[in-house]
Design a protein around this nucleic acid. Structure first.
Lengths: 347, 347
DNA sequence: TTGAAAGCGCTAACAT
DNA sequence: ATGTTAGCGCTTTCAA
């Protein structure tokens, strides 16, 4: 950590500035000598000093609720791969979905990063806005803030995805449909929730309060909600779960309660489940587009950093595809009674 | 990004040094005034400048093959939680198992981090050693280097884990046992491989070359290996897979080939599979202790950073527990023919 | 307790 | 093409 550009300059017999130029890729006469001197002294450039001088850190902050959630791990991966070309390094932080922790984390990032990709843990924008005021571009990932026009954002089409899932269940003939939502205090949770309910109404399906559960996107809340659904005297014949972790919890509950999927209950969830094709049956899901979201966010960010971005705020919505696999089928009533709603054969 | 400590000093009517002292938690007379000035100017400290002066970045580098592998995502999580108290930030990098990429990444980390947690992609230690020579403590995670005594390291007991898995299969009565190993060029792959084979020999089980496959820890290689195993005229009755990703691939292959687990083939693998309990049957695994490895590595590192660590290199081995679930049973031959090796009933 | 001043290692005018 | 020089924003002696 101790050999500096001056040491190299002395050994190579040139000035400090020449070494600096060489280091920055400009052609200099003494190139070979400098190279040798660098090797001899074991010099390596001090990024901190460079950053102080240049005002840029060549790092970006990535703030997610929890990397150990595969959804975010993949998003981070997408970011990483996509920002590698620009040779940006990534500062990774977890918020645990806590607003306080998020503020703490963002505070620690000030002055350490040139830009920020944030999955907001809260809809209040105070700290991110402060960051932006300091000239740090911010791109929101997977979630939005109350005020839409503050930052670039990339999202999956939560509305369309939830709607597609709902229509699919209805068209299979389901009329008793359960819903396990994420927190209604933030984008994907609320949007999926509202869109699903709206679609149910559009399809003129009864919305029964006891079929609706609001969880927190974590496994346990999915488990609890599903347990409650299956214990009803008239349980739903299908359920939509709003994210991957709650889906895992719900599946565990169903299995425990000996509820067969899809025979006893059809099952659709939002987000890919990483080893989902190993499950029996394979799960029908709405894709959360984690990797693509990450990659796109990184792209938006580097455009901003290069000053190539438009002044207006961009909002990119990735299509949410419904991947139909084997976890849904028509409800038993339709199969047995040949109800008029049976527009689909059972596979 | 532009208001500095001098601005605050001017507004508060004190000297720059006083503000600095205040910022570093020392009691000063003008404390309240400074606080007000900070609020008024919207000042926030420039970490880069502080780092240049103090020589420490309060960041640590975390270099893993791939965060989107749940094993490493969880290890990163363990690191993060454990280093939060010390308020260290994490620089996350992926190597994709490439030695070249690793060197690149490590080069980019020089001068940006105070310390490093590394899952080496290669056993050659040139660059990590250079780092260490610059005074950057290094802790190895999950894998070792050729030279053992260079750095602190934390590992799971690969040897004991593979041995336990092997003994378990043998005791169930298996005599035709397949092995899908990771790369033999690095620690966990080679150690698990050798330990498994040694145990087979100790148990006087025939080691047939066609039962042994060396993969690369990625899903596809597990798939290919398993495909090959099941296509043998006399396939093994049990298989041990050396990591989580290859296990997924292998399971897909078995499913595709209509090989039932455990009836047709017993299955044990190393590392937890995150949603493993949802699989049917639930998988018997040797735990990889990802989170604990991460947490412990962070602890070792912060001891070094605080200078509290012994001079000697520490090597911490976490016990590898065999979690017996439902993916193994005695081989059919034992069940049907009541072979003398049937020490276990089928569950 | 405080202020003045030096300097961390680098880059970028500016001058040569 | 190269050297000289002045900082980037902070911490920390050293004196007062």
């Amino acid at each position: 950590m101790s050999t500096t550009i001056d040491d190299v300059a002395r050994v190579a017999g040139v000035s400090r500035a020449t070494v600096s130029r060489f280091l920055n890729g400009r052609r200099v006469r003494a190139g070979a000598a400098i190279e040798a001197a660098i090797a001899e002294t074991g010099f390596s450039l001090n990024h901190t000093a460079r950053s102080l001088k240049s005002g840029e850190t060549r790092s970006i902050g990535v703030v997610v609720p929890d990397v150990s959630n595969p959804f975010f791990a993949q998003a981070v991966r997408g970011i990483e791969v996509s920002s590698r070309d620009e040779s940006y390094n990534i500062f990774l932080c977890n918020t645990d979905e806590s607003a306080a922790r998020q503020d703490e984390v963002l505070g620690g990032l000030i002055g350490r990063v040139d830009a920020l990709i944030l999955v907001p843990a809260t809809e209040s924008a105070a700290v991110p806005r402060a960051l932006a005021a300091m000239g740090v571009p911010v791109v929101l990932l997977d979630r939005e803030l109350e005020e839409h026009d503050l930052f670039d954002s990339v999202l999956v089409d939560n509305e369309g995805g939830a709607e597609a899932a709902c229509r699919y269940l209805v068209q299979l003939g389901h009329r008793r449909i359960g819903l396990i939502s994420g927190p209604l205090t933030a984008t994907p949770g609320r949007t999926r929730h509202e869109s699903f309910l709206r679609t149910l109404r559009e399809e003129q399906v009864d919305v029964r309060p006891e079929y609706i559960h609001v969880g927190d996107f974590r496994e346990l809340s999915g488990y609890v909600a599903a347990k409650s659904l299956v214990s009803l005297s008239e349980p739903p014949t299908a359920v939509f779960v709003a994210n991957n972790l709650m889906a895992i919890g719900a599946l565990k509950a169903l299995r425990e309660s000996k509820v067969r999927v899809p025979e006893d209950m059809s099952f659709v969830s939002f987000d890919e489940l990483d080893i989902g094709d190993l499950l029996e049956p394979r799960l029908t899901t709405v894709s959360g587009r984690s990797v693509e979201q990450g990659a796109l966010a990184a792209r938006l960010l580097s455009e901003r950093l290069r000053g190539e971005a438009p002044v207006t705020v961009r909002r990119c919505v990735l299509e949410a595809q419904l991947s139909v696999r084997e976890s849904c089928c028509p409800p038993l009533s339709v199969i047995n009674e040949g109800g008029s709603n049976a527009r689909f054969d059972r596979r």
